[in-house]
Amino acid sequence: MPVDNPLHDLALAAIDADAQAKELLIARDRSSLIPFSTIYAYVNNPSFIPPTDFENLLERDLSAQENLNRLLEKASLAYMPMLAAASSGEVTRRETDVAIMTLTPSRVEQGQVYLKIEVKDLNAEMPTQIFVRRAGGPWIRTALPNFVNAQTQLLLEAKSSIAQVLSVPDGEVYLC
Protein backbone atom coordinates (compact mmCIF):
# COMPACT_ATOMS: atom_id res chain seq x y z
CA MET A 1 0.00 0.00 0.00
CA PRO A 2 1.42 3.33 -0.95
CA VAL A 3 2.52 5.63 1.78
CA ASP A 4 1.31 9.19 1.61
CA ASN A 5 4.64 10.79 2.32
CA PRO A 6 5.22 14.45 1.27
CA LEU A 7 8.97 13.94 1.32
CA HIS A 8 8.60 10.97 -0.99
CA ASP A 9 6.43 13.04 -3.33
CA LEU A 10 9.00 15.79 -3.28
CA ALA A 11 11.75 13.36 -4.10
CA LEU A 12 9.75 11.96 -7.02
CA ALA A 13 9.00 15.46 -8.27
CA ALA A 14 12.68 16.28 -8.09
CA ILE A 15 13.57 13.19 -10.08
CA ASP A 16 10.91 14.03 -12.62
CA ALA A 17 12.13 17.60 -12.93
CA ASP A 18 15.65 16.36 -13.42
CA ALA A 19 14.50 14.02 -16.15
CA GLN A 20 12.56 16.79 -17.82
CA ALA A 21 15.52 19.10 -17.58
CA LYS A 22 17.77 16.48 -19.15
CA GLU A 23 15.26 15.96 -21.92
CA LEU A 24 15.12 19.67 -22.55
CA LEU A 25 18.87 19.89 -22.64
CA ILE A 26 19.13 16.98 -25.07
CA ALA A 27 16.47 18.52 -27.18
CA ARG A 28 18.43 21.77 -27.19
CA ASP A 29 21.51 19.81 -28.30
CA ARG A 30 19.55 18.22 -31.11
CA SER A 31 18.36 21.54 -32.33
CA SER A 32 21.99 22.68 -32.66
CA LEU A 33 22.90 19.77 -34.95
CA ILE A 34 22.49 19.81 -38.72
CA PRO A 35 18.86 20.26 -39.73
CA PHE A 36 17.48 17.89 -42.29
CA SER A 37 16.85 20.78 -44.66
CA THR A 38 20.59 21.52 -44.70
CA ILE A 39 21.45 17.94 -45.51
CA TYR A 40 18.82 17.95 -48.20
CA ALA A 41 20.18 21.10 -49.82
CA TYR A 42 23.72 19.75 -49.52
CA VAL A 43 22.75 16.71 -51.57
CA ASN A 44 20.43 18.31 -54.07
CA ASN A 45 21.69 21.81 -54.68
CA PRO A 46 25.21 22.20 -56.10
CA SER A 47 25.23 25.93 -55.42
CA PHE A 48 24.30 25.44 -51.75
CA ILE A 49 27.15 26.46 -49.48
CA PRO A 50 26.99 24.55 -46.19
CA PRO A 51 27.83 26.23 -42.88
CA THR A 52 31.53 26.51 -42.12
CA ASP A 53 31.42 23.90 -39.35
CA PHE A 54 29.27 21.54 -41.40
CA GLU A 55 31.88 18.83 -41.83
CA ASN A 56 32.82 18.82 -38.17
CA LEU A 57 29.21 18.60 -37.11
CA LEU A 58 28.51 15.89 -39.63
CA GLU A 59 31.40 13.86 -38.33
CA ARG A 60 29.90 13.92 -34.82
CA ASP A 61 26.29 13.50 -35.80
CA LEU A 62 25.37 9.93 -36.60
CA SER A 63 21.79 10.86 -37.29
CA ALA A 64 22.81 13.44 -39.90
CA GLN A 65 25.18 10.92 -41.44
CA GLU A 66 22.34 8.44 -41.78
CA ASN A 67 20.16 11.10 -43.35
CA LEU A 68 22.93 12.02 -45.77
CA ASN A 69 23.47 8.42 -46.78
CA ARG A 70 19.77 7.85 -47.31
CA LEU A 71 19.46 11.01 -49.38
CA LEU A 72 22.44 10.10 -51.48
CA GLU A 73 20.98 6.69 -52.21
CA LYS A 74 17.68 8.25 -53.11
CA ALA A 75 18.88 11.26 -55.10
CA SER A 76 21.75 9.74 -57.01
CA LEU A 77 21.73 8.78 -60.63
CA ALA A 78 24.57 6.36 -60.18
CA TYR A 79 26.38 4.63 -57.36
CA MET A 80 29.82 3.23 -57.93
CA PRO A 81 30.78 0.99 -55.03
CA MET A 82 34.27 0.21 -53.85
CA LEU A 83 36.14 -1.93 -56.31
CA ALA A 84 37.13 -5.46 -55.51
CA ALA A 85 40.48 -4.77 -57.07
CA ALA A 86 42.82 -7.66 -57.66
CA SER A 87 45.74 -5.37 -57.15
CA SER A 88 46.30 -2.29 -55.10
CA GLY A 89 47.25 -0.36 -58.23
CA GLU A 90 45.88 3.00 -59.22
CA VAL A 91 42.29 2.99 -60.43
CA THR A 92 41.73 4.88 -63.67
CA ARG A 93 38.30 3.65 -64.70
CA ARG A 94 35.01 2.84 -63.00
CA GLU A 95 31.98 1.67 -64.89
CA THR A 96 28.44 0.72 -64.01
CA ASP A 97 25.46 0.13 -66.26
CA VAL A 98 24.63 3.83 -65.80
CA ALA A 99 27.91 5.71 -66.12
CA ILE A 100 31.60 5.50 -66.92
CA MET A 101 34.21 7.47 -65.06
CA THR A 102 37.84 7.77 -66.13
CA LEU A 103 40.89 9.46 -64.72
CA THR A 104 43.49 10.54 -67.28
CA PRO A 105 46.73 12.25 -66.28
CA SER A 106 47.43 15.49 -68.09
CA ARG A 107 50.27 15.28 -70.58
CA VAL A 108 50.89 18.96 -70.12
CA GLU A 109 50.81 19.38 -66.35
CA GLN A 110 52.18 16.36 -64.57
CA GLY A 111 50.39 17.11 -61.33
CA GLN A 112 46.94 17.35 -62.86
CA VAL A 113 44.37 14.75 -63.94
CA TYR A 114 41.20 14.84 -65.98
CA LEU A 115 38.11 13.24 -64.49
CA LYS A 116 35.72 12.42 -67.29
CA ILE A 117 32.18 11.24 -66.56
CA GLU A 118 29.98 9.76 -69.23
CA VAL A 119 26.33 8.90 -68.64
CA LYS A 120 25.19 6.05 -70.83
CA ASP A 121 21.57 7.08 -71.13
CA LEU A 122 21.60 10.24 -73.22
CA ASN A 123 18.09 11.06 -72.06
CA ALA A 124 18.77 10.74 -68.35
CA GLU A 125 18.75 13.79 -66.11
CA MET A 126 22.41 14.57 -65.83
CA PRO A 127 24.05 14.70 -62.41
CA THR A 128 25.19 18.01 -61.02
CA GLN A 129 27.38 16.81 -58.18
CA ILE A 130 29.79 14.05 -57.34
CA PHE A 131 30.22 12.65 -53.83
CA VAL A 132 33.23 10.47 -53.10
CA ARG A 133 34.69 8.89 -50.00
CA ARG A 134 37.11 6.24 -48.91
CA ALA A 135 35.88 3.40 -46.75
CA GLY A 136 34.70 4.91 -43.48
CA GLY A 137 35.88 8.37 -44.44
CA PRO A 138 33.91 11.57 -44.85
CA TRP A 139 32.10 12.42 -48.06
CA ILE A 140 33.80 14.90 -50.39
CA ARG A 141 31.38 16.86 -52.53
CA THR A 142 32.20 18.60 -55.82
CA ALA A 143 29.94 20.35 -58.29
CA LEU A 144 30.09 19.08 -61.86
CA PRO A 145 30.26 21.24 -64.98
CA ASN A 146 27.31 21.01 -67.32
CA PHE A 147 27.09 17.83 -69.34
CA VAL A 148 27.45 18.09 -73.11
CA ASN A 149 26.36 15.01 -75.06
CA ALA A 150 26.05 13.17 -71.75
CA GLN A 151 29.68 13.85 -70.92
CA THR A 152 31.46 16.19 -68.60
CA GLN A 153 35.01 16.68 -67.47
CA LEU A 154 36.78 18.08 -64.44
CA LEU A 155 40.41 19.06 -64.26
CA LEU A 156 41.82 18.21 -60.85
CA GLU A 157 45.08 18.48 -59.01
CA ALA A 158 46.35 14.91 -58.74
CA LYS A 159 46.96 15.52 -55.05
CA SER A 160 43.44 16.79 -54.39
CA SER A 161 41.40 14.67 -52.03
CA ILE A 162 38.80 13.84 -54.68
CA ALA A 163 41.41 12.65 -57.19
CA GLN A 164 43.15 10.61 -54.54
CA VAL A 165 39.94 8.91 -53.42
CA LEU A 166 38.98 8.13 -57.01
CA SER A 167 42.33 6.56 -57.74
CA VAL A 168 42.12 3.92 -55.01
CA PRO A 169 39.93 0.80 -55.07
CA ASP A 170 38.22 1.50 -51.75
CA GLY A 171 36.75 4.75 -52.96
CA GLU A 172 32.99 4.90 -53.50
CA VAL A 173 31.08 7.38 -55.58
CA TYR A 174 27.62 8.84 -55.95
CA LEU A 175 26.64 10.93 -58.94
CA CYS A 176 23.70 13.12 -57.92
Binding site: T102, T104, P105, S106, R107, V108, E109, G111, Q112, Y114, K116, P145, Q151, Q153, L154, L155, L156, E157, S160
Partner: peptide
Protein backbone atom coordinates in the same frame (compact mmCIF):
# COMPACT_ATOMS: atom_id res chain seq x y z
CA UNK B 1 50.72 27.90 -74.48
CA UNK B 2 48.87 25.26 -76.44
CA UNK B 3 49.81 21.65 -75.94
CA UNK B 4 48.41 18.35 -77.10
CA UNK B 5 46.51 16.38 -74.52
CA UNK B 6 45.49 12.72 -74.55
CA UNK B 7 42.78 12.03 -77.12
CA UNK B 8 40.63 10.51 -74.36
CA UNK B 9 40.05 13.88 -72.78
CA UNK B 10 38.17 16.91 -74.00
CA UNK B 11 40.08 20.05 -74.93
CA UNK B 12 40.26 22.66 -72.20
CA UNK B 13 41.13 26.30 -71.78
CA UNK B 14 42.82 26.79 -68.43
CA UNK B 15 43.79 29.83 -66.46
CA UNK B 16 47.53 30.30 -66.17
CA UNK B 17 48.55 26.67 -65.75
CA UNK B 18 46.10 26.01 -62.94
CA UNK B 19 43.85 22.98 -62.60
CA UNK B 20 40.89 25.11 -63.53
CA UNK B 21 39.11 24.54 -66.81
Amino acid sequence: RIREEDSNVASVICLDGRAEA
